[in-house]
Design a protein around this nucleic acid. Structure first.
Lengths: 148, 148
DNA sequence: TGACAAATGCAAATAAGTTGCATATAATAA
DNA sequence: TTATTATATGCAACTTATTTGCATTTGTCA
C-alpha cells in the first residue's frame, strides 16, 4: 500500500495529437486544452475546473463543448470518469488512473492510494462468472491536517 | 469473497419507530415509508424509486420531503449514500451496507460482493496517518446473462 | 484547394438536488 | 386530553450538472 501523488509523475512532454488521432478524434484547440488540463492536474478535475484551466490558457470553449469533449475522451478510453459523492463527475487521464483516492471530508484534499490488492479481489469475483471491466474504490475521512 | 444478495436476508420485522426515535427523529408516515422501502429493497434505491414505493403504499410525500428525509437519515447514520456513476445518488439501509456491489453495465443488475479484504487495505492506509471514516468500492462490467 | 464529416456555439431543455417560507403535525408537558 | 412548541412537510422557485437540437465552423484527406 502506497500513498503518493501519481499526478506529480507525469511525463510533461507527451504527444496529445497522437493520442487524439489514435482514438479517431480530430485535433482541435479545445481538445488539446482538455487533455493538457488533465495531464498537469494534481487531482481529478471537474468540468468547471477544466473550463477555468482553458480560460487561463486563452483557449475559449463553451461549457457544452467541454462536456462533449470529456464524454468523447471517456468513450474512447483516454480519460476516466469518477465520483467522490459530490453530485458531479470528475475526470482523470487514463495514463494516471491505475490507483484510487482518499478524499478528506473537511478540506477536500485528494491523495492517491496505489498498490492495494484490489486486483486479487477482482480475480476472485471473476471466478463467479462476472466480467469486471472497471471498478471504483474511494476512501473518505480526515487527512492528517484536519484531524486536530 | 462471496457474491450473494444481502438484501434478501432482512429480518422483516424491525422496529422502524425505535430506529427513528433513537436518532432523535420524529416518527412520521413518510419516514416510516422511506425506511420500509430501503428495508425491502433488493438493491440500493434512488429517490424516484423511493417515491414510487411510497405511492404504491398509498403514502403521499413530496419529492422534496423525500430528499429531506433521506438526507436526515444519512446524517444520522441510519442509511448510506452511494453512487454507481449514474449522476445521482442511491441509498441503502445501514444495516445492510457492510458489502460492496457489482453493477452490470448492460442490464443494470446489481449484485452484492461481500467478505472482500478491504478492511486490511484500510488498516494499511490508516497507518499513513489518514483517518478513514468510510469507503466506496464498486465493480462494473457484465453479468453472466449479458456476456453472451 | 474543395468536399465532407466531425466539432463547436448557442439556446433551450432535462434531471438531480436545495432553499425559503407558510402550514401542518408529532412529541411533551399540564 | 388538550395546549404548546419544535419539527416536518408542501409548494414554488432556484441552482447546478448535464444533455439535445440545430445552424455554423473547422479539421482532414483526397
Amino acid at each position: 500500500m502506497q500513498l503518493n501523488n501519481i499526478y506529480n509523475m507525469t511525463n510533461t512532454r507527451h504527444d496529445c495529437k497522437k493520442e487524439l488521432r489514435g482514438a479517431s478524434l480530430k485535433v482541435t484547440p479545445a481538445r488539446l486544452g482538455v487533455l493538457a488540463a488533465l495531464e498537469q492536474a494534481q487531482t481529478p478535475l471537474d468540468v468547471s475546473e477544466i473550463i477555468t484551466y482553458l480560460e487561463n490558457k486563452g483557449i475559449k470553449a463553451d461549457k457544452v463543448t467541454v462536456f462533449r469533449i470529456i464524454n468523447a475522451l471517456t468513450d474512447k478510453g483516454l480519460t476516466k470518469q469518477i465520483q467522490f459523492n459530490e453530485g458531479k463527475f470528475r475526470y482523470e487521464h487514463s495514463r494516471k488512473a491505475d490507483h484510487h483516492h482518499f478524499v478528506c471530508e473537511r478540506c477536500g484534499k485528494i491523495e492517491d492510494v496505489s498498490n492495494c490488492n484490489i486486483d486479487e479481489v477482482e480475480k476472485d469475483i471473476q471466478k463467479k462468472g462476472l466480467l469486471i471491466k472497471r471498478h471504483s474504490l474511494e476512501f473518505f475521512g480526515l487527512c492528517k491536517d484536519c484531524q486536530s
